[in-house]
Measured scan of single mutants.
Amino acid sequence: MIVFVRFNSSHGFPVEVDSDTSIFQLKEVVAKRQGVPADQLRVIFAGKELRNDWTVQNCDLDQQSIVHIVQRPWRKGQEMNATGGDDPRNAAGGCEREPQSLTRVDLSSSVLPGDSVGLAVILHTDSRKDSPPAGSPAGRSIYNSFYVYCKGPCQRVQPGKLRVQCSTCRQATLTLTQGPSCWDDVLIPNRMSGECQSPHCPGTSAEFFFKCGAHPTSDKETSVALHLIATNSRNITCITCTDVRSPVLVFQCNSRHVICLDCFHLYCVTRLNDRQFVHDPQLGYSLPCVAGCPNSLIKELHHFRILGEEQYNRYQQYGAEECVLQMGGVLCPRPGCGAGLLPEPDQRKVTCEGGNGLGCGFAFCRECKEAYHEGECSAVFEASGTTTQAYRVDERAAEQARWEAASKETIKKTTKPCPRCHVPVEKNGGCMHMKCPQPQCRLEWCWNCGCEWNRVCMGDHWFDV
């Protein structure tokens, strides 16, 4: 396979590697080409510095992935760790964990309700045991953590790749202090920090972006993250068709209702045909949960890209028209025109101005929308079919299609509260000796007794199943 190397943020060049090629071997190839010592090179990928003893497969490097290699003399205490030698983080029983690669970060837990604080980093599902597709590297999971809308060759929703760059020099040479644990960490600028490894760059702020994971991409090709779309790892039924499908869209209502993408497309087109989208002054033209839940309008309007190009163009047109109407304007009634106009409040005669090729020149009556006339309008008909009709959803289907309910059931079956801080902690095999993952707590306690870890627990039921 081919990976592209950008040395000291210059133009990239291809390097041929195998899945079992080590990072140090990659350094040696680059060092020979650039005429520099291999031990002064640092390989940066997806916000993480890659260790010498890791392989291309370990690092989730795919065909035509772009890695950054910078030349920086080692500072005291760094060289041993980078070589894969006596790194205290690798000691058996050590409590410190390697910062998780962005290629394996899962933010789907952050669609849980606000009262489930902490689960994004504490609760991990076991539903990723799908067998890898044919042709994928051994052991590589097909679980997708992110979804994007690819405006490039795909023109559809695709699995996405999370990447990070330095907000100062805009190069992907920043190593994160810690990985993101929720969508806010990724979507809110300057929320996460790190250290830029580019020479002479003092940058410390992280800037995240997404790429389409279905095809090789260049540095400049980015895609918009659709953070309401998630892999259906909890096997929730769709609120409309009641099938279990994946991926799904999880509405931001209190129940976190789930809808499959085909039904979401149908829901949007139906509402669009009836012009029953909601115009929100802050958000724009949007839709609420299909069950009509309060405070559930979709905030990231790129989710409506699921409509496809033709329907999305209609959505944008109707949204612009609705904006004009909300501002007190009118639409030209001549067939084939429909231009938005903003006449004076007491102006009865409205002319669709033909300047700049935008208007048709038609003069019409503001009251009856017919060709302009003197005197009273002959008839004014009330528009028919403008009443909002509820999208029919079966109550039982709505009850079963809740992301929140599956989460709470998982928590109930696989977790116990920490005796000190009461945060839910998952036990997935292993011994009875637990350690609270909350940095402010870190209590060592017994899963069996529910009390602080002691010699009695150690001698009596340390390794009970």
Rank of each mutant, 00 (worst) to 15 (best):
P137H: 12
K435A: 14
R163D: 15
Y143S: 10
G450S: 05
F7S: 02
C253I: 01
P202D: 14
V117M: 12
G160W: 00
V186E: 01
R163I: 15
K76T: 14
M192A: 05
Q316S: 11
G359I: 07
Q311A: 06
A206V: 05
H68G: 00
G12N: 05
L261W: 04
T177H: 13
F277C: 02
D87C: 12
C418D: 01
N190V: 04
G354W: 07
H265L: 07
F251D: 01
L272V: 02
A383G: 10
M80R: 09
V3F: 05
E98C: 07
N295E: 13
P294D: 13
A383D: 10
P88V: 11
Q25E: 15
F304Y: 07
Y147G: 01
L119H: 15
F209R: 11
L119S: 15
C365V: 02
D18Q: 11
V15K: 00
L272R: 02
R275S: 01
Q316I: 14
T387W: 08
D20W: 04
G357H: 13
H215V: 01
F277Y: 12
G139F: 11
C268Y: 02
E367D: 12
K412S: 12
A172I: 05
V456K: 15
L325F: 04
P99K: 14
M80F: 13
L187C: 06
P247F: 03
A120C: 07
E207H: 06
P132T: 11
G118Q: 10
C457H: 03
P333H: 03
P137F: 11
L119Y: 13
V380H: 10
T125S: 12
T21L: 05
Y312W: 14
A291E: 03
G84V: 13
L102P: 12
R191M: 10
K408Q: 11
N58E: 15
Q40T: 12
M434E: 04
Q34S: 11
T231M: 07
N356R: 11
F7D: 03
Y372S: 08
M80T: 11
S193E: 12
P189C: 05
R334N: 07
E409T: 09
R97L: 12
H227D: 13
S246R: 04
A383L: 10
V164L: 10
V121F: 12
Y143E: 05
W403D: 03
V148L: 04
E221L: 07
G357A: 12
D86W: 13
H265M: 10
